[in-house]
Amino acid sequence: MIPFDFEYYRPETATEAVTLYTDLAGRGKNARYFGGGTEIISFCRLYQLYPHAVIDIKGIPELNTFEQKNGKLFIGAAKTLSQIQESNLFPLLNYCGGRVADHTIRNKITLGGNLCAMIPYRETSLALLVSEAELVIQNRKGKKILPISEIFHESLRLEDGDLLMGVHIREECLGAPFVCLKKTSDGNVGYPQDRVGYPVVSVAAMRADNKIQAAFSGVCIFPFRSRTVEEVFNKSNLPREEKIRQAVEVIPAAIHDDMISSAGYREFVLKSMMAEILERLE
């Protein structure tokens, strides 16, 4: 039970939503856009979040759309991870989104909610980083479309009041060869808990334009795609073992060490996943 009150709004257009957000802010009210709301409800219940208002964006038709147009697939931010998985339009995103939480919760978690999550594991970001997706964002000034590399640095750097409308993915990425792996601290403990849990390491890698592109989560405190790691992966005339050694040296931050996994074990898992990426995509 959430032990305090907040106001609930369900706008019908994106313009209405961003205007409302600004109006509420002008009245000193801290509002949150509310997609699946699983994280907001959990954090409110745990006294870690105190919004004055939530703006439920699921009633905005544009945010509930799959559309293929002009060589791109658009996925609305309010599409749930299960809807994305059932649609099977972008298999790499199915895999990345299909390992978040459990199946029933994925009926509620939205793509936008996962990308904007407060917890550090934003698994769908991996598929979008390697496919160089574009993000459609609406605010009071209008709509803008930005490459994810410009706005995702450790987390999604939205400005106050920005509403994530959805993502564009180039059609050539939809069927590109890929590798998607996740290891949890439980490993496979047997039904029903196999695969459920935060990752020790998870990776999404794709072969596009004859090059390997790879993104990681669990390794550091934030998910990342590193061009430097990719340069090492794509060097010719370098043995795989050496590529892995050099790639681990250039990851962008210290390997995370916490109760889920020690840094040493994470590095071991990371190296084994890198070996699998190279074996399958080289």
Partner: peptide, 13 residues
């Protein structure tokens, strides 16, 4: 028709 964990859904939703 889809399973939802009702502890993670607002009634108003």
């Amino acid at each position: 028709g889809w399973p939802i964990k009702s502890c993670l859904m607002l009634a108003v939703e």
